[in-house]
Write a protein that binds this DNA or RNA. Structure first.
Lengths: 258, 258
DNA sequence: CGCGAACTTGAGGCGTGTCAACCCCTGTGG
DNA sequence: CCACAGGGGTTGACACGCCTCAAGTTCGCG
């Protein structure tokens, strides 16, 4: 009986051999210029010549990370940035005394590693919350490319700036909101990010546990659970385990207007 | 009787006129290469030629900001970064509904404005907590200089990275610490930053009110006040209004080891 | 000297943490 | 196929840390 292969319509044996040979690390070329995520990775309006440079030097390889595995750990040497191609991650800041804080959740198109540039060492753990693939972007290449391609440099600065603004939002949530407000703000932010990526903003499959949400929001997992139930009772959303359906986004937003 | 003037030993009237004429924006040249803060503003090991470029194009002017005045407001067009030369600032994130969060305190050598690169608009208010002077660094100049002087570019990236790491620390404080721990972590961090700048790390004059500290730490001003008193009762420090004397820094650090 | 802003301290209430019981879902192995 | 284990989620009762409200003090400044 016929089995499914990566390349359809070719003799299975030969196709496989071909793929293996052509798939060696050095040969596995990544094309940023035709990637469906290029709108988030690259600035608009690049010249042919600039795109060529980026294609040939920005992403050196693709790396797979299975659910639960770490992409990098705090203390690891910083050598490359990682752009998520598929999948979902969390970053966790841990102190030597066992305190832990989830500092963010990252999804397709997000760039990880900025926190490591200063020290030359990563300062957080990055853990895959589902099977994922990331583009490996050596930092030295990125630096050089930025110099040669000014719009790329500017793009990079904007992404770092956005990260800082996002962290300020997190501080606002953590510092001056009630549990209900924090959860509402979290869901709305997640919803926005999904919409930007072309996913449904109302039907959300949470990739993280209640405990991870709690850590991010400065709440205990029981409080997160209770708050979901409360918002459901208020008719703002439906919760069924990790499946969330936002039925009244304006109502959710209204919770923040106080 | 004689009065005190900015320039001593000159006829008051003439001196004033002179200063006004020579003090016009275009004429007031700033020399980064000889500034006492250059170690924090510039990378080490720059060539003569690179220093010249920086001197001539990085800082276009010096701006004075009196205590209580704003350097920039959320919504203002982003045109320049600001490096603090003397003084002390807070940055405040405010929502349309009146919620406020102090996102940081900045002192001499700190660079402000990164949060505005992405949107092209400032996202926080920067308010002077004492009479201050800042170097104005047009962003377009900085971008161009970065391209021409790679070590400067790298330096800039490191500063932005450090800002992100600092925000993560803030999230850790806000998300998973008790009031006592937050205050201890805040004081130790402040102490470190003062030491780096050559000030006493143990004798600290707070530039901000209890309310501002509270906002930054996600606490009410009464809680901050009570916590100071408690730490004093524990023999870790002396508090006298805004004057703090840390008498047992290791004891303070020990509070965080749980 | 007197006013207001900043700070301190106390009493009581509220929001969230803690602890525990229970349920649901999934994967595993007999 | 079912029994079982284990991780994740929900819900309740109670505790506790921080907030709220209020009164009083200190300090800086006109």
């Amino acid at each position: 009986m016929p089995s499914l292969h990566g390349v359809v319509g070719l003799p299975p044996g030969k196709a496989r051999l071909r793929l293996l040979v052509r798939g060696e690390p050095a040969a596995r070329k990544v094309q940023c210029s035709t990637c469906h995520l290029r709108r988030s990775c690259l600035p608009a309006g690049l010249s042919e010549r600039e795109l060529e440079r980026i294609d040939s030097r920005m992403v050196t390889s693709l790396r797979k990370v299975h659910q639960g595995e770490t992409l990098f750990r705090a203390g690891d040497r910083f050598e490359a940035m990682f752009q998520i191609w598929t999948g979902f991650f969390k970053t966790v800041l841990a102190t030597s005394q066992g305190r832990e804080q989830v500092t963010g959740f990252q999804m397709a198109g997000d760039l990880m590693g900025f926190e490591a540039i200063d020290a030359g060492l990563h300062s957080v753990d990055a853990i895959a919350l589902e099977d994922s693939q990331v583009c490996v972007i050596p930092y030295s290449n990125l630096e050089a490319l930025g110099r040669e391609v000014p719009p790329l440099q500017r793009h990079l600065h904007r992404i770092m700036s956005r990260e800082i603004v996002g962290d300020h939002d997190a501080m606002l949530r953590l510092g001056s909101m009630y549990a209900e407000e924090r959860v509402a703000a979290f869901l709305l932010s997640l919803s926005d990010r999904l919409r930007e990526r072309g996913f449904s903003p109302s039907s959300i499959l949470l990739r993280m546990t209640r405990e991870e949400i709690g850590s991010y929001l400065g709440l205990k997992l029981e409080t997160v659970s209770r708050t979901f139930s409360k918002l459901q009772a208020g008719g703002l959303l439906f919760v069924c385990q990790r499946q969330i359906k936002i039925t009244d986004p304006t109502g959710l937003a209204h919770l923040l207007e106080t």
